[in-house]
């Protein structure tokens, strides 16, 4: 874990117009791990990801990618090092899974060379890794939510970037499909050594599928560290205003978050 962080945030403030969302945030993303960002609604999770992907320019502070300022990279050079999947991306009508995956090769191609057998092979591998190769010629709108999400991950994967940022990849997915996507994320990290940053809503899933947990509140870093040590009832009460039990589940021995009975809250308050 002593390797230098591939992506680090130094005193970053950012927001939209006059509204400041992130306030002097500093953070180091550990290399080759799954980092999950959690926090209550509006705490700046997505804003942080947008700053990391250079979709939003910070008003103060700076982001370093491999020790160099993020702003110094040319767009296509950056797209070969880092990619981000926004929340609920929408593909044009009748676009097929293989066409989407092939788009991931774009940062590697000059404008006059838009096809290469090698690019095809990499896109096919990405589709196989995400388990969507069976739907290669299916239009995206005919797929289920989970399959569609995995098709987008295939595109990001075909980019072959070391860093992948995923903004709520399990949004609008039922539990089975959410687990399917997160299993994939962890597998990608383990098998290829990628550094992955995920924003998640679901605290239990975040605790189970993470190496490094980052908790934001009101645009500031509330806590960070391994989930077992970080995800505590105190943190949940303080950070989220949620009274909850945290325990290792009996089968997998992984941290689990269960909300406490509402009645207890009233008893406690009284």
């Amino acid at each position: 874990m002593c390797e230098p962080s591939p992506l680090s945030v130094h005193g970053v403030s950012a927001g939209y117009g006059k509204q400041t969302v992130l306030a002097r945030l500093s953070l180091e993303i550990p290399r080759g791990r799954v980092t999950t960002v959690i926090g209550p609604n509006g705490c700046g999770k997505s804003t942080l990801l947008r700053v990391l992907a250079r979709l939003l320019t910070p008003t103060a502070g700076h982001v370093l990618l491999e020790g160099e300022p993020l702003g110094a990279f040319r767009p296509r050079t950056l797209a070969r090092k880092l990619t981000m999947l926004p929340q609920n991306p929408v593909a044009p009508e009748s676009m097929t899974v293989s066409e989407l995956a092939a788009r991931g090769r774009q940062p590697h191609q000059p404008w006059y060379r838009r096809w290469d057998p090698e690019d095809d092979r990499i896109a096919a591998e990405a589709m196989a890794a995400t388990g969507v190769e069976a739907y290669a010629d299916t239009p995206l709108e005919e797929l289920s939510g989970g399959q569609r999400q995995r098709a987008w991950v295939a595109m990001a994967l075909a980019q072959q970037t070391e860093l992948m940022l995923l903004d709520e990849p399990t949004n609008h997915l039922d539990l089975a499909h959410a687990v399917e996507v997160l299993d994939l994320v962890v597998r990608l990290c383990r098998e290829t050594g990628r550094t992955i940053v995920v924003v998640l809503h679901d605290l239990s899933l975040a605790a189970r599928y993470t190496d490094h947990l980052v908790v934001l509140k009101d645009g500031e870093l509330r806590a960070q560290g391994p989930p077992r040590e970080t995800m505590t009832p105190e943190l949940l009460l303080d950070g989220f205003g949620l009274r909850a039990h945290v325990f290792d589940d009996p089968e997998d021995r992984l941290p689990t978050v269960v909300p406490a009975r509402t009645a207890q809250r009233f008893e406690g308050a009284a």
């Binding site: 296509r76 950056l78 797209a79 990619t83 999947l85 991306p89 676009m95 788009r103 990001a156």
Partner: peptide, 18 residues
Amino acid sequence: ARDVAALRLGREVAPTLG
């Protein structure tokens, strides 16, 4: 052509493709 095609995926996705 390449950049126009990337824009079809949305203004949020296009920058991640360079």
